[in-house]
Simulated assay, not measured.
Amino acid sequence: MPDGFPEFAPDLAVEVRSPSDRTGAVVAKVSDWLSGGTTLVWVIDPPREQVVVYRADGTVSVLAMGDVLSGEELLPDFALSPQELFAAT
Rank of each mutant, 00 (worst) to 15 (best):
K29L: 15
P19Y: 06
S31G: 14
V43K: 02
I44V: 15
S20T: 09
T23D: 13
D57Q: 12
Y54Q: 01
A28F: 03
A56P: 02
P46W: 06
R17K: 15
E15I: 05
V16N: 09
T23L: 14
E49L: 05
T39G: 11
T59Y: 05
D32N: 11
V53W: 03
Y54L: 10
V60L: 13
L40C: 02
V52Y: 01
T59D: 14
S20A: 14
V52D: 06
D32L: 13
D57N: 15
T23S: 10
S18F: 12
D32G: 09
L40Q: 03
R48H: 11
R48Y: 06
R55E: 13
G36T: 12
V43W: 01
V43G: 00
A28T: 07
I44L: 12
W42V: 03
V51Y: 04
R22H: 12
G58H: 08
G24E: 12
V27G: 02
Y54T: 09
T59H: 14
S35Y: 07
V30Q: 02
S31I: 04
V27H: 04
G36E: 02
T39S: 14
V51E: 01
V60A: 06
S31F: 08
V27S: 06
P19K: 05
R22Q: 15
L40R: 00
P46Q: 06
A56K: 09
V30I: 08
R55H: 11
V27L: 11
D21E: 05
W33E: 08
V26D: 04
V16L: 14
V30C: 07
R17D: 03
D45A: 02
T38P: 09
P47R: 06
T59I: 00
A56G: 04
R55I: 08
P47V: 02
V60M: 14
G24C: 09
R48P: 01
S20I: 13
S18I: 06
R17V: 05
V41C: 06
T38W: 05
R17W: 13
P19L: 04
T23W: 09
T39V: 13
L40F: 00
V52A: 06
R17M: 15
V41H: 00
Q50T: 08
V27N: 03
T23C: 07
S31V: 10
A28H: 08
V27R: 07
W42H: 03
V53E: 12
S35K: 15
T23M: 11
V60F: 06
A56L: 12
L34N: 06
D21N: 09
W42M: 10
L34V: 14
Q50I: 11
T23H: 11
V41W: 01
D21M: 04
V16R: 14
Q50G: 02
